[in-house]
Protein backbone atom coordinates (compact mmCIF):
# COMPACT_ATOMS: atom_id res chain seq x y z
CA UNK A 1 0.00 0.00 0.00
CA UNK A 2 1.01 3.56 -0.02
CA UNK A 3 3.54 5.44 2.07
CA UNK A 4 4.07 4.57 5.66
CA UNK A 5 4.97 7.36 7.94
CA UNK A 6 7.81 7.18 10.36
CA UNK A 7 5.50 7.11 13.34
CA UNK A 8 4.71 3.50 12.54
CA UNK A 9 5.78 1.60 15.62
CA UNK A 10 5.35 -2.08 16.35
CA UNK A 11 4.31 -1.52 19.95
CA UNK A 12 1.00 -0.15 18.77
CA UNK A 13 -0.36 -3.58 17.97
CA UNK A 14 -1.77 -4.30 21.42
CA UNK A 15 -5.27 -2.94 20.83
CA UNK A 16 -5.46 -5.19 17.79
CA UNK A 17 -4.37 -8.22 19.75
CA UNK A 18 -6.71 -7.45 22.63
CA UNK A 19 -9.68 -6.99 20.30
CA UNK A 20 -8.82 -10.19 18.54
CA UNK A 21 -8.58 -12.11 21.79
CA UNK A 22 -11.94 -10.84 23.03
CA UNK A 23 -13.57 -11.70 19.71
CA UNK A 24 -12.04 -15.15 19.71
CA UNK A 25 -13.34 -15.86 23.21
CA UNK A 26 -16.81 -14.61 22.21
CA UNK A 27 -16.78 -16.80 19.13
CA UNK A 28 -15.76 -19.95 20.98
CA UNK A 29 -18.37 -19.30 23.60
CA UNK A 30 -21.03 -18.82 20.92
CA UNK A 31 -20.09 -22.03 19.15
CA UNK A 32 -20.26 -23.84 22.48
CA UNK A 33 -23.69 -22.34 23.13
CA UNK A 34 -24.91 -23.47 19.73
CA UNK A 35 -23.76 -27.02 20.34
CA UNK A 36 -25.38 -27.02 23.77
CA UNK A 37 -28.66 -25.68 22.46
CA UNK A 38 -28.76 -28.19 19.64
CA UNK A 39 -28.32 -31.01 22.10
CA UNK A 40 -31.30 -29.76 24.09
CA UNK A 41 -33.42 -29.48 20.97
CA UNK A 42 -33.56 -33.25 20.64
CA UNK A 43 -36.98 -34.62 21.43
CA UNK A 44 -37.08 -36.27 24.81
CA UNK A 45 -38.36 -39.80 24.54
CA UNK A 46 -40.86 -40.67 27.22
CA UNK A 47 -41.55 -43.97 28.83
CA UNK A 48 -44.34 -45.54 26.79
CA UNK A 49 -45.66 -47.78 29.52
CA UNK A 50 -46.25 -44.95 31.94
CA UNK A 51 -47.76 -42.67 29.34
CA UNK A 52 -51.49 -42.23 29.75
CA UNK A 53 -54.11 -42.88 27.14
CA UNK A 54 -52.30 -44.11 24.07
CA UNK A 55 -52.97 -47.32 22.26
CA UNK A 56 -49.61 -48.70 23.39
CA UNK A 57 -50.28 -47.91 27.04
CA UNK A 58 -53.82 -49.30 27.00
CA UNK A 59 -52.66 -52.43 25.20
CA UNK A 60 -49.81 -52.89 27.66
CA UNK A 61 -52.25 -52.59 30.53
CA UNK A 62 -54.52 -55.20 28.93
CA UNK A 63 -57.27 -52.60 28.47
CA UNK A 64 -59.98 -52.54 25.85
CA UNK A 65 -59.33 -50.96 22.46
CA UNK A 66 -61.74 -49.86 19.79
CA UNK A 67 -62.17 -52.44 17.00
CA UNK A 68 -60.62 -52.50 13.57
CA UNK A 69 -63.48 -53.20 11.23
CA UNK A 70 -62.58 -54.78 7.90
CA UNK A 71 -65.19 -54.17 5.21
CA UNK A 72 -66.65 -57.31 3.69
CA UNK A 73 -68.55 -58.03 0.48
CA UNK A 74 -72.25 -58.39 1.14
CA UNK A 75 -72.40 -61.95 -0.14
CA UNK A 76 -72.31 -63.95 -3.35
CA UNK A 77 -72.61 -61.78 -6.44
CA UNK A 78 -75.55 -61.91 -8.83
CA UNK A 79 -75.48 -62.02 -12.59
CA UNK A 80 -77.51 -59.79 -14.91
CA UNK A 81 -79.57 -61.89 -17.28
CA UNK A 82 -81.47 -59.12 -19.06
CA UNK A 83 -84.59 -57.01 -18.47
CA UNK A 84 -87.99 -58.04 -17.33
CA UNK A 85 -90.14 -57.79 -20.48
CA UNK A 86 -93.07 -56.37 -18.48
CA UNK A 87 -91.54 -54.02 -15.87
CA UNK A 88 -88.25 -53.29 -17.61
CA UNK A 89 -86.35 -53.94 -14.35
CA UNK A 90 -82.93 -55.56 -14.46
CA UNK A 91 -83.13 -59.26 -13.78
CA UNK A 92 -80.52 -60.63 -11.47
CA UNK A 93 -80.00 -64.25 -10.71
CA UNK A 94 -77.64 -65.90 -8.30
CA UNK A 95 -74.85 -68.05 -9.67
CA UNK A 96 -76.35 -71.36 -8.62
CA UNK A 97 -79.54 -70.61 -10.56
CA UNK A 98 -77.75 -71.46 -13.79
CA UNK A 99 -74.84 -73.49 -12.56
CA UNK A 100 -77.12 -76.01 -10.85
CA UNK A 101 -77.86 -77.26 -14.35
CA UNK A 102 -75.08 -75.87 -16.49
CA UNK A 103 -71.73 -77.51 -16.13
CA UNK A 104 -68.79 -75.18 -16.46
CA UNK A 105 -65.98 -76.14 -18.80
CA UNK A 106 -62.97 -76.51 -16.51
CA UNK A 107 -60.58 -76.09 -19.44
CA UNK A 108 -61.80 -72.56 -20.00
CA UNK A 109 -59.40 -69.84 -19.00
CA UNK A 110 -60.69 -67.24 -21.43
CA UNK A 111 -63.96 -65.42 -20.86
CA UNK A 112 -63.96 -64.20 -24.46
CA UNK A 113 -64.72 -67.71 -25.63
CA UNK A 114 -67.95 -67.74 -23.59
CA UNK A 115 -70.86 -66.80 -25.81
CA UNK A 116 -73.88 -67.11 -23.49
CA UNK A 117 -72.76 -65.49 -20.24
CA UNK A 118 -69.72 -63.80 -18.71
CA UNK A 119 -68.36 -62.84 -22.11
CA UNK A 120 -68.13 -59.20 -20.96
CA UNK A 121 -65.88 -60.05 -18.05
CA UNK A 122 -62.36 -58.87 -18.68
CA UNK A 123 -60.14 -61.54 -17.27
CA UNK A 124 -56.52 -60.67 -16.62
CA UNK A 125 -55.40 -62.41 -13.48
CA UNK A 126 -52.57 -64.87 -13.04
CA UNK A 127 -50.88 -64.38 -16.40
CA UNK A 128 -52.96 -67.05 -18.16
CA UNK A 129 -52.25 -69.71 -15.57
CA UNK A 130 -55.62 -69.40 -13.84
CA UNK A 131 -59.04 -70.59 -14.86
CA UNK A 132 -62.43 -69.77 -13.35
CA UNK A 133 -62.30 -72.65 -10.90
CA UNK A 134 -59.02 -71.48 -9.43
CA UNK A 135 -61.25 -69.31 -7.25
CA UNK A 136 -64.88 -70.19 -7.97
CA UNK A 137 -66.13 -73.38 -6.37
CA UNK A 138 -67.50 -75.65 -9.15
CA UNK A 139 -69.55 -77.57 -6.61
CA UNK A 140 -71.21 -74.38 -5.27
CA UNK A 141 -70.91 -71.30 -7.41
CA UNK A 142 -72.30 -69.14 -4.57
CA UNK A 143 -69.05 -69.58 -2.76
CA UNK A 144 -65.32 -69.54 -3.43
CA UNK A 145 -62.82 -72.33 -3.09
CA UNK A 146 -59.29 -72.36 -1.69
CA UNK A 147 -56.50 -74.25 -3.39
CA UNK A 148 -56.86 -77.09 -0.92
CA UNK A 149 -60.54 -77.48 -1.82
CA UNK A 150 -61.99 -75.85 1.27
CA UNK A 151 -65.02 -73.63 0.80
CA UNK A 152 -64.59 -69.92 1.38
CA UNK A 153 -67.58 -67.59 1.68
CA UNK A 154 -67.59 -64.53 -0.57
CA UNK A 155 -67.53 -62.37 2.55
CA UNK A 156 -64.19 -63.92 3.47
CA UNK A 157 -62.63 -63.22 0.09
CA UNK A 158 -59.44 -61.94 1.74
CA UNK A 159 -58.62 -65.49 2.84
CA UNK A 160 -58.84 -66.61 -0.75
CA UNK A 161 -56.59 -63.85 -2.04
CA UNK A 162 -54.10 -64.30 0.76
CA UNK A 163 -53.27 -67.86 -0.25
CA UNK A 164 -51.32 -66.53 -3.25
CA UNK A 165 -50.72 -62.93 -2.18
CA UNK A 166 -49.30 -63.68 1.23
CA UNK A 167 -46.81 -60.82 1.11
CA UNK A 168 -49.55 -58.29 0.41
CA UNK A 169 -51.64 -59.89 3.12
CA UNK A 170 -48.81 -59.64 5.59
CA UNK A 171 -48.37 -55.98 4.74
CA UNK A 172 -52.12 -55.53 5.01
CA UNK A 173 -52.16 -56.97 8.50
CA UNK A 174 -49.59 -54.35 9.47
CA UNK A 175 -51.35 -51.45 7.88
CA UNK A 176 -48.88 -51.24 5.01
CA UNK A 177 -51.36 -52.24 2.31
CA UNK A 178 -54.95 -51.43 1.58
CA UNK A 179 -55.35 -48.13 3.36
CA UNK A 180 -57.59 -47.28 6.25
CA UNK A 181 -59.90 -44.69 7.74
CA UNK A 182 -60.59 -43.56 11.27
CA UNK A 183 -58.07 -43.66 14.09
CA UNK A 184 -54.39 -44.50 14.26
CA UNK A 185 -54.83 -44.74 18.03
CA UNK A 186 -57.35 -47.47 18.84
CA UNK A 187 -57.61 -46.29 22.41
CA UNK A 188 -59.37 -43.22 21.04
CA UNK A 189 -61.57 -44.57 18.29
CA UNK A 190 -62.19 -47.35 15.78
CA UNK A 191 -60.63 -47.94 12.38
CA UNK A 192 -62.19 -49.11 9.14
CA UNK A 193 -60.27 -51.07 6.55
CA UNK A 194 -60.92 -52.04 2.97
CA UNK A 195 -61.07 -55.57 1.75
CA UNK A 196 -59.15 -56.76 -1.32
CA UNK A 197 -62.02 -56.39 -3.76
CA UNK A 198 -62.73 -52.81 -2.70
CA UNK A 199 -59.71 -51.74 -4.70
CA UNK A 200 -58.93 -54.71 -6.94
CA UNK A 201 -61.27 -56.19 -9.53
CA UNK A 202 -60.74 -59.90 -8.84
CA UNK A 203 -60.88 -60.71 -12.56
CA UNK A 204 -58.40 -57.96 -13.49
CA UNK A 205 -56.74 -57.02 -10.23
CA UNK A 206 -54.19 -54.55 -11.49
CA UNK A 207 -54.94 -51.21 -9.83
CA UNK A 208 -56.67 -49.06 -12.45
CA UNK A 209 -55.03 -46.12 -14.12
CA UNK A 210 -56.15 -42.75 -12.84
CA UNK A 211 -56.19 -39.21 -14.09
CA UNK A 212 -54.76 -36.69 -11.65
CA UNK A 213 -57.46 -34.07 -11.13
CA UNK A 214 -55.81 -31.68 -8.74
CA UNK A 215 -52.56 -29.99 -9.68
CA UNK A 216 -50.80 -27.07 -8.01
CA UNK A 217 -51.11 -23.72 -9.75
CA UNK A 218 -47.87 -22.18 -8.56
CA UNK A 219 -46.95 -18.78 -9.84
CA UNK A 220 -44.18 -19.12 -12.40
CA UNK A 221 -44.31 -22.90 -12.54
CA UNK A 222 -44.98 -23.75 -16.14
CA UNK A 223 -47.67 -26.41 -16.36
CA UNK A 224 -45.79 -28.02 -19.19
CA UNK A 225 -45.24 -31.59 -18.11
CA UNK A 226 -43.64 -32.56 -21.38
CA UNK A 227 -40.28 -30.96 -20.69
CA UNK A 228 -37.50 -33.42 -20.14
CA UNK A 229 -36.73 -32.53 -16.59
Amino acid sequence: MSERTKTDRPGRAWPLIATFAVLAILLFWAVYAVIQARGLADVEVEDVASAPHTEAAVRAAGGKLYPVQVRRPAGPPQVVVGEDPVTGATRLVSCTTCHATRVADPEHGRTKALDDFHGEVVFDHGAGALGCNACHDPSDYDSLRAADGRRIAYADVMRLCAQCHSRQHESYRHGAHGGMNGHWDLSRGPRTRNTCTDCHDPHAPAFPSMKPTFKPIDRGLQPDGSSDH
Binding site: P212, P216, G225, H229
Partner: peptide, 10 residues
Protein backbone atom coordinates in the same frame (compact mmCIF):
# COMPACT_ATOMS: atom_id res chain seq x y z
CA UNK B 1 -35.29 -36.10 -13.56
CA UNK B 2 -38.54 -35.50 -11.69
CA UNK B 3 -41.47 -33.29 -12.52
CA UNK B 4 -44.52 -32.14 -10.55
CA UNK B 5 -46.61 -30.76 -13.39
CA UNK B 6 -47.52 -34.03 -15.13
CA UNK B 7 -51.23 -34.23 -15.91
CA UNK B 8 -51.51 -37.40 -17.96
CA UNK B 9 -53.03 -40.72 -16.92
CA UNK B 10 -51.02 -42.33 -14.14
Amino acid sequence: KGNTTYDHTV
